[in-house]
Design a binder for these strands. Structure first.
Lengths: 250, 250
DNA sequence: TGAATAGTGTCTTTCAGACAGTATTGG
DNA sequence: CCAATACTGTCTGAAAGACACTATTCA
């Protein structure tokens, strides 16, 4: 078959019924994986689905998210930011799209597509307490201990894998810290996300060889030698390192 | 505001109208960026939109793609594979999701979400000619010379960036080659995608230090020294290298 | 023999890993 | 002084960059 001789008009924008738009549309959702470091652990925000509704999975834990509102959301990331604002009251400092999951069977209400984002919060930005229908759950391996609604365990696993992979060669963990931090703080954030220790000397050399941070004329005092405080030179910008941290073990 | 006290039911699966599904749904599409190396260039497959329809962008060039068919497509990647089969008659050897683009303004027919995939084809797999409504266009920088319908230039740029970035540390270009190839062929594919020369010795060392390829007991004859032929040890599997090819220039 | 491409060897550079060492605070 | 954490220096090894060198075919 010659290329281009598709048997159905498969050109983008051509519908199953040519020119018409009266075919069934999938449900469109956005789900957000909110990461934070709490108690020296990587944790993720979960919300409980209403127990008394006729929605699926009543009372189950799920990722925050929901349907795109075509009236309110200008685009997908605005929808994700809205979901996050509604749940936590804060504007996302770092929002990254992980990917989309769509199919016939992932939601009993019909063919659905969800686009998953992840967000990194510093512990300082989440001073408020949790209401009853939300809770933090520690990340264990690629997920959480409790069962999740829909295919949210799959979505969460994808987000965790993306986070861990990207932490190997980017400055992502900086978004888990307050505006001013020490290099030890930063190394600690890396170690929590990667769940393995890093070598101090190499870590410092590597961070300081980039333009990621700049010192602020302050030091953190304590029961030991004070530490230099740093801030991001370009807040909100991600820095890429030329190599991963530990070359994969053989 | 305490976390979790969202003012609207923002739990996943909760609609703008609680429990009901009678709100407006976005259009859901899939678009596919088909890459191949032709004439020592990286090229991408474009299709022409019908000129005589009342669809938007009549007669314009676009990425192959279109609406999800909830009756036929089990999931998003099946939809992408179907679009590709319809257009080229071949099953995708390597299909990767690039990301989703959704918003109010990207399609005049309404709020739409498209999920973009890219595919790598070997020149050998596309022996058939092109029909009038399809053509290959060389990739220049992050796009093609001709104007594209919708926001397809943005989608294409995202796919090109993803491809180039991932080629730095994976075996992706192997999918642009036939089943049996020489190391020079492979290096050539890398150089075409990355648009820069690679050093032969380092390239060979690197490839042969992995389990990516295994020699086949054949050699390619020519007007010079014959070259050892190799094949993928695990066809369809992507191999990750511990480092990028040339550490980014400073 | 020479052109052309295949393939190897060798030196250098870069940077992470390991780890020991020094520095600076409070108690 | 000691404990504790911050920070630096030094050696090593792995892998890329540069580049010259050898190898094998056809014409």
């Amino acid at each position: 078959m010659p290329i281009g001789s598709g048997r159905k008009g498969a050109v983008s924008g051509t519908s199953p019924r040519r020119g018409a738009l009266d075919f069934e549309r999938p449900l469109v959702l956005v789900d957000v994986v909110v990461f934070a470091v709490r108690d020296d652990r990587l944790e993720v925000l979960l919300v409980r689905r209403p127990a008394d509704s006729n929605d699926p999975y009543p009372g189950a834990w799920a990722l925050p998210g929901g349907f795109v509102d075509v009236g309110r959301d200008a685009d997908l990331s605005a929808c994700a930011a809205r979901k996050l604002r509604d749940k936590t009251g804060i504007d996302p400092p770092y929002l990254e799209q992980v990917g989309s999951f769509g199919g016939r069977d992932r939601d009993p209400r019909g063919w659905s597509v969800t686009t998953v984002y992840f967000v990194l919060l510093s512990a300082q930005s989440i001073v408020g307490g949790l209401s009853d229908d939300a809770s933090w759950a520690p990340v264990d391996r690629e997920g959480v201990a409790r069962a999740l609604a829909f295919d949210h365990a799959v979505l969460l696993a994808a987000a965790v894998r993306r986070l861990r992979a990207k932490v190997e060669y980017t400055s992502l963990p900086a978004f888990l810290l307050p505006a001013e931090f020490t290099l030890s703080d930063l190394q600690h954030a890396y170690e929590i996300v990667l769940d393995r220790p890093l070598e101090k000397s190499a870590f410092r050399t590597r961070i300081l060889s980039t333009t990621l941070v700049e010192p602020v004329p302050k030091r953190r005092e304590g029961a030991n030698r004070p530490a230099q405080l740093y801030r991001l030179r370009d807040p909100g910008e991600l820095v890429y390192f030329p190599r991963t941290f530990n070359p994969p073990r053989d």
